[in-house]
Design a protein around this nucleic acid. Sequence first.
DNA 1: CTCCGCCTACCAA
DNA 2: TTGGTAGGCGGAG
Length: 167
Amino acid sequence: MNTSLIELPIATADGNFLARYSEKGLAGLDFPKNGRASSRPVATKQIPLQTLRWHRTATEALKAILAGREPKALPPLDWAGTTEFQQAVWRTMLAIPLGKTKSYGEVAKAIGNPKAVRAVGGACGANPVPVLVPCHRILAANKKIGGFSGGLDWKRDLLTREGIVCE
DNA sequence: CTCCGCCTACCAA
DNA sequence: TTGGTAGGCGGAG
């Protein structure tokens, strides 16, 4: 069983993101690292054509969102190893259009488990593909910013780019 | 089973 | 308003 992931950088005006692909699709996305450690180089020729296609799609999607535009398409996402609950939360987030938000409570209600509010927060924090799976569009009750594992600065920044104003 | 967390509603100042 | 807190739930160990 091949579980090795291919890591490819996505250069943006905001830094170098790092995308990870499995044979099933995009499995992870990291915000630019603080250190200037460039990712390990990968010879283009040994990367499956399919992966390159996904990478092109992911790159366009990421740049679109960073520019405040709804992405045309997303690459397939590989959520292997994650739970049904988490996937339900992430699917709900994917349904939130750019520029709109939902509270943790609303998401909990949406997945049919209104009391699992805090658990929803946990799923957001476990989101392996931030930005593309818009966990930043989930705010706390009363439009408070809430938390963000990728750093609150990023959350505020992303929301601002989408024209969202919160508390 | 225990502990913790991107939450909330509620209650006391 | 602000601050502290108990309740509830999924995930990790």
